[in-house]
Amino acid sequence: MQVVNFSKRNELINKNLSLSYCYQCSTCAGGCPVALKTAGKYNPRKIIELSLLGLEQSLIESQDINIWLCSTCQKCVEYCPQRVLLTEIFNTIKNHCALAGLAPEAYYLQGKSIFDSGLAIPFSSAILRRREQLGLPLIKTPNIEEIQSLLKKTDFDKKIISKTQKE
């Protein structure tokens, strides 16, 4: 059985003060398109509840509610009568999941692409030809050394890129 984890609770509240405003009214869940589509299996209110209790295992290790299903439509943020910034809180939790190597693979692949090329989608030779056919200019892409040096300053290589080189 999990018990309330005050240090995780405090960590999340310190990062996102609005978390402590939540009074669990469930307005967020009522307006959530993903909650509707999954018949409540995904439920933003419950993620906030787990956060308030600091239940790290449910939030991160076993991901009892799959936080990656959030569509980031931002409706909950608009609706919340207490101005809880749900999607920002969810991003903090997702960052913790990613650090633990527990984000869906597609996210790591995008992170790797951005680290390698500065772009989520690098230019393929087929696309470069198509651009030429359409009379479009050549795009000057960013200096990769600069991008990587900036990302390394945030430890992105150690925290995230290392997870893509396992196996």
Binding site: W68, N95, A103, Q110, G111, I114, G118, I147, L150
Partner: peptide
């Protein structure tokens, strides 16, 4: 403009690492 990178993706990179997203 020359040399812009991925914005970066608010539904992708930000979920991996907020600071990396912020710096780019």
């Amino acid at each position: 403009i020359d040399g812009a990178s991925c914005c970066p993706d608010p539904t992708g990179l930000e979920a991996l690492d907020h600071d990396a997203w912020l710096v780019l």
